[in-house]
């Protein structure tokens, strides 16, 4: 047995054990849905939570000056207002799947990290929709 490799092996083993029982256990319920929160709000009070759902149509209010972003996360049953500070990610829009990290303050969810859950479906833009290249061209022409 070569001691230093054995030590390395044991460290890796411990890391896998930690990830499998500690990390995986937590990440198996990666996010809670609004209706799950509504079932038992006390369970999540004051804790760091990931809230997952869809951005409710027409609920997005963004102030570019203060970077205040307000929107509603819904799972179709329960709506939860979310307050977040920061520029919304590129793929952020109505009906987009999102996961917000943060905590509940009363009935409002204060987010500090906003993640996008995009779909597994990939398509070229339909006829009549602009591709970024076309948009770039239009901008060039407008100058």
């Amino acid at each position: 047995m070569r001691a230093k490799y054995l030590i390395g092996f044991l460290i890796i083993l411990a890391a896998i054990g930690y990830l499998a029982w500690g990390g995986l256990g937590k990440s198996l319920v990666y996010y809670v849905l609004p209706s799950e929160y509504a079932d038992n709000p006390a369970k999540y009070a004051g804790k760091r939570v990931r809230l997952g759902g869809l951005v409710k149509q027409g609920s997005v209010h963004f102030n570019p000056k203060t970077l205040e972003l307000k929107f509603v996360v819904t799972d179709g049953v329960v709506d939860i207002p979310v307050e977040h500070t920061g520029t919304p990610p590129e793929l952020f829009k109505d009906n987009q799947g999102v996961v917000v990290e943060g905590h509940f303050e009363g009935n409002v969810f204060k987010g500090d990290n906003l993640l996008i859950k995009h779909s597994e479906s990939y398509q070229a833009p339909r006829e009549g929709e602009y591709t970024p290249d076309e948009v770039r061209k239009l901008l060039e022409e407008a100058k």
Binding site: I16, G23, L24, S27, Y30, P89, L91, L115, I116, H118
Partner: peptide, 19 residues
């Protein structure tokens, strides 16, 4: 990073990939 918004997060696919 550009699509989800983070380089890494401890969600099931990534955690099992790390394992």
């Amino acid at each position: 990073r550009p699509t989800w918004g983070v380089y890494w997060t401890w969600e099931p696919k990534l955690t099992t990939s790390a394992i």
